[in-house]
Amino acid sequence: MMDFTVQKYRELLRALINSNYQFQTFEEFILKPEKKSVVLRHDVDLLPKNSLVFAQIQASKGIKGTYYFRAVPQSWDKKIIKEIADLGHEIGYHYECLTTTQGDVEFGIHDFESNLSALRTLSPVSTICMHGSPLSKYDSKDLWKTYRYQDYDIIAEPYFDVDYNQVFYITDTGRKWDGHKASVRDRVNTGVTRKFHSTSEIIDVLNANVFPDQVMFTFHPQRWNDNIIKWSKELVLQNVKNVVKRHLFVKKNL
């Protein structure tokens, strides 16, 4: 059976529900983490309609997720942002300010302020998350070496405010669950070595009741399609991207 389909996503949610996880937004988890909790984080890099489908599926099951939107036309769809917020999900800012400003920290913080303010006209925003921008030489997390996001009424950023030795982090970066070699910046410091290749493997471990108690999933909904043509196109494009990103990662660490 094909992986990274909307149907497979539904199966994953069903397994999490059956395993009695509490679904928390990232904001809720930071403020009061449940003992057995899952955070469904969604990076809306492209195709925001795909994220809306995910949000609707979750809402139909009475669960919530967190959706981070980039300030670019490919992601920033005001109508969809409002729709997802109205479904009860958390909206956050997927910032890439040092990429946008070519590493200029002063312009970068102005870019951050402007985009955060604009997003807050559509929905409350209390958390942010860096967009990796793998083709850029700039890491937007470096903005916080000079400034403090807490000064903007931001309570947390996933790459700074989570202990990943306690919280299991798993991401579909590279359109695979074990795509760490194809990830330039979507990495966390953790001593956890457990790896999964397919969504079915994750579901099997959930059904066996041996999955970690506190988990953060990161999804890129543009990668999940039931339509075979769209699914195949994403597979081919992502495989090409992974080759490029692996090269960039090796070059970065030379």
Results as ranks from 00 to 15, higher is better:
residue 5 T to L: 04
residue 6 V to K: 11
residue 6 V to P: 01
residue 8 K to C: 01
residue 9 Y to P: 01
residue 9 Y to K: 09
residue 9 Y to E: 05
residue 9 Y to R: 11
residue 13 L to F: 00
residue 17 I to D: 09
residue 18 N to H: 12
residue 19 S to Q: 04
residue 21 Y to V: 08
residue 21 Y to M: 11
residue 25 T to Y: 06
residue 26 F to P: 04
residue 27 E to D: 00
residue 34 E to P: 02
residue 35 K to S: 03
residue 35 K to A: 03
residue 41 R to V: 03
residue 44 V to E: 04
residue 45 D to T: 10
residue 45 D to F: 10
residue 49 K to N: 02
residue 50 N to E: 06
residue 51 S to N: 07
residue 52 L to I: 01
residue 52 L to A: 02
residue 52 L to N: 01
residue 53 V to E: 12
residue 53 V to C: 07
residue 54 F to V: 04
residue 57 I to Q: 05
residue 59 A to L: 05
residue 59 A to Y: 12
residue 62 G to I: 05
residue 62 G to R: 06
residue 64 K to N: 12
residue 65 G to F: 08
residue 67 Y to W: 00
residue 70 R to W: 03
residue 71 A to Y: 13
residue 71 A to T: 09
residue 72 V to Q: 13
residue 74 Q to F: 06
residue 78 K to Y: 05
residue 80 I to N: 08
residue 86 D to H: 08
residue 86 D to S: 12
residue 89 H to F: 11
residue 94 H to C: 03
residue 95 Y to M: 04
residue 100 T to Y: 15
residue 100 T to V: 15
residue 102 Q to Y: 13
residue 108 G to K: 08
residue 110 H to V: 05
residue 110 H to Y: 14
residue 112 F to R: 09
residue 114 S to I: 07
residue 115 N to H: 14
residue 116 L to G: 13
residue 117 S to Y: 15
residue 121 T to E: 15
residue 122 L to C: 01
residue 122 L to D: 00
residue 127 T to L: 01
residue 128 I to R: 11
residue 130 M to D: 04
residue 132 G to F: 10
residue 135 L to V: 02
residue 135 L to M: 08
residue 142 D to V: 04
residue 142 D to M: 09
residue 142 D to G: 03
residue 145 K to S: 13
residue 146 T to F: 10
residue 147 Y to Q: 06
residue 148 R to V: 01
residue 149 Y to T: 12
residue 155 I to M: 09
residue 156 A to R: 01
residue 162 V to H: 15
residue 162 V to G: 13
residue 165 N to L: 09
residue 165 N to C: 01
residue 171 T to K: 13
residue 171 T to M: 11
residue 171 T to W: 07
residue 172 D to W: 07
residue 173 T to V: 15
residue 174 G to W: 00
residue 175 R to G: 06
residue 179 G to P: 00
residue 180 H to E: 10
residue 181 K to H: 08
residue 183 S to F: 11
residue 188 V to T: 07
residue 188 V to A: 08
residue 189 N to A: 15
residue 190 T to Q: 09
residue 193 T to K: 07
residue 196 F to T: 07
residue 198 S to W: 04
residue 199 T to M: 08
residue 201 E to W: 06
residue 203 I to P: 12
residue 207 N to T: 00
residue 208 A to E: 05
residue 208 A to M: 07
residue 210 V to I: 14
residue 211 F to P: 11
residue 217 F to I: 09
residue 218 T to W: 04
residue 223 R to T: 13
residue 223 R to F: 13
residue 225 N to K: 11
residue 225 N to Y: 13
residue 230 K to L: 13
residue 230 K to N: 14
residue 232 S to K: 08
residue 236 V to Q: 03
residue 238 Q to P: 02
residue 240 V to W: 10
residue 241 K to P: 01
residue 242 N to D: 10
residue 247 H to D: 13
residue 248 L to V: 05
residue 250 V to M: 11
residue 252 K to L: 11
residue 253 N to F: 07
